[in-house]
Design a protein around this nucleic acid. Structure first.
Lengths: 349, 349
DNA sequence: CTGAAAGCGCTTACAG
DNA sequence: CTGAAAGCGCTTACAG
């Protein structure tokens, strides 16, 4: 790894000129540019990003903060992360994975985060990360609503509308007794979806019963990976078999639902319908039946999050929306059908 | 963000002393330490990682390079990445996601990678990344065998043994006509598994037929996400229904297999057995039947890769193994059973 | 279009 | 145990 001085000497120019050639911040004559490039190639030179960062105050990296120490990625996360990395790369930015709870970091005295900004996934109602970012003065955009003293830019789906749309879709099929396996209790997205669900049900004149709403356990909870399976059994049992439709939070959950229903001898969608929020085609079509879903467009969310952040940083031109809503749409497959007649799917015990 | 000078002045010590307190590289008297810490807190000071990196030559970040621009994570990837991030954090290291093909990077003139080392996933027989790392002088460990001029440390499963074990397992159940849906052609892991499969079959006296070996399409190929589904149909058709067992490369592929077999009216495991290499319990138990698998211990691989890399960097004590093999083991579930009598699963057409 | 020099915010011998 | 000073490898006004 040679340094800028050596290149400058070999190309018979000043360090400043070498710098200009690589940063392209000031024009350089064609002849000089070529001489510098040739010298650089000869010496295998590439600018040192760290030294550059020290003076430009730009690390050229953004943080992607995902809560949890241990985690599972759903299809949503996978597509989202993929898109964030790709979009960031378009502007020469790299992505630092950052998903460690602060208390689990080894070093007692942390150095500053070498990132220019952050994308905060799955925000909670009370989220340490928000406060941390604000204290450190790191610009960030959240994926989903957040509770903060100062307003912070957010990229999100319209979660209230999503649940309303799903309920309307199921209502139209004659369903009324719907159980909702919601996201984690402490997340803001779960709160919004919960409210919207309650409203939709009230609008339809359905009295809410306890078996109609569950929340995904924390990742640290061993019941996490059996969420769909176990709560589906509860739903069927507690509802006395009256439930005619299930809304599952993600693909993993939905597979658990299907598994439980199969064990109970219930047919999907004839006895009971299953609707899943997000998941990708290559998995959702693998089950029997293929799962009808709401496409949350995670790739759009990721790309918008990055451009919003880069706008905040002045890298990309354009105004930053305080609240950017990404469209979503129902993808019909085969797991939802007209509700069975009352009691048809009652379980024998 | 205040700087070291301000803290030094407030604490009435030199910059060097403030530095020592935070780096803990030289002892500092208790009294002075406390004064510095108090001043730091008051000024909300934290050392600037970039400035520190410039002189220490340590970025405190490792790169995780995953091939492809677009990607799907299998359960294997998810658990592996998770483990890498966690293990790195134990030593104060962060993880930079790096999965962009070089030709897709926007900036024509790249600055140096601000990482101390890299973990290279899914190496190919001819892999640009290896050459790049070597040219840039970045220490790296590969997950899987690699073709390189100089030997490079590798953390891996014993892929030959894995396939041998799987074949032995299936042989013991009476299977002989086995189709192998292998990893991508260009990967070294696929090559090792292929050879081992061929050996095992030869040892058993089975003549290899074309329908017995397939390779996963490149991610850029649209057939990628239907690999398991489509090739399973091919296997059944081309073998004239004589195949009695399928080995699938990963969970996603296996779900595709199951889907195809169901459409063909073949019962798993009575008509045909399915064995999957890797996948996690929370998905593998969701299908009908639950999938018997080889547990590759991705979390162990990730942790070992990080410690090996940090040893190369002199961060962690200990010798670095040129080749570190992580154990694997069969997890029996319900998708493999005794082979049916010859022709029992012949498909009617 | 190009150069000389200061400076980004730390760490690290060297000296005491 | 602590300090003064040089230096890490760049970029950026300033001057021409």
């Amino acid at each position: 790894m040679s340094k800028i001085d050596e290149v400058a000497k070999l190309a018979r120019v000043s360090k400043g000129t070498v710098s200009n050639v690589f940063s392209q911040k000031r024009p350089t004559s064609k002849e000089v540019t070529e001489r510098v490039l040739r010298a650089s190639r000869e010496l295998n030179y590439v600018p040192n990003q760290i030294a550059r960062s020290l003076v430009t105050k730009r690390t050229m990296a953004i943080g992607l903060t995902i809560p949890h120490g241990r985690f599972f990625f759903s299809a949503f996360h996978t597509q989202f992360i993929n898109s964030v990395v790709l979009e960031a790369a378009r502007y020469g930015y790299r992505v630092l994975l950052d998903m460690i709870p602060a208390q689990d970091i080894a070093t007692p005295f942390l150095a500053s985060y070498p990132i220019d900004g952050a994308v905060v996934m799955d925000p909670r109602e009370a989220d340490d990360r928000i406060e941390l970012m604000q204290r450190e003065g790191i610009p960030f955009v959240t994926i989903g609503r957040v509770q903060a003293t100062a307003p912070t830019p957010t990229v999100d789906n319209d979660n209230r509308k999503i649940v309303r749309d799903i309920c309307d879709y199921l209502f139209a099929l004659g369903h009324g007794r719907i159980a909702f396996l919601n996201a984690g209790v402490s997340t803001t997205v779960a709160a919004d979806r919960r409210e919207s669900f309650l409203e939709a049900m009230a609008g339809r004149g359905v009295r809410i019963e306890p078996w109609m709403m569950f929340h995904k356990p924390e990742l640290s909870d061993e019941r996490y990976s059996n969420y769909g399976y176990e709560e589906t059994k509860r739903v069927i049992e507690d509802s006395g078999g009256r439930a005619t439709a299930l809304i599952a939070d993600d693909d993993r959950t939905a597979f658990g639902c299907l598994h439980a229903l199969k064990e109970l001898g219930l047919d999907v969608p004839n006895d009971i319908s299953v609707f899943v929020i997000c998941g990708d085609d290559s998995m959702l079509t693998r089950s029997t039946p293929a799962l009808t879903s709401m496409d949350l467009r995670p790739a759009d969310l990721g790309a918008r999050a990055v451009t919003t952040l880069l706008r905040m940083l002045g890298i990309v031109d354009g105004d930053v929306d305080e609240r950017c809503i990404v469209d979503s749409g129902i993808v019909e497959r085969s797991s939802c059908a007209a509700a069975p007649n009352q009691g048809r799917n009652r379980v024998e015990r």
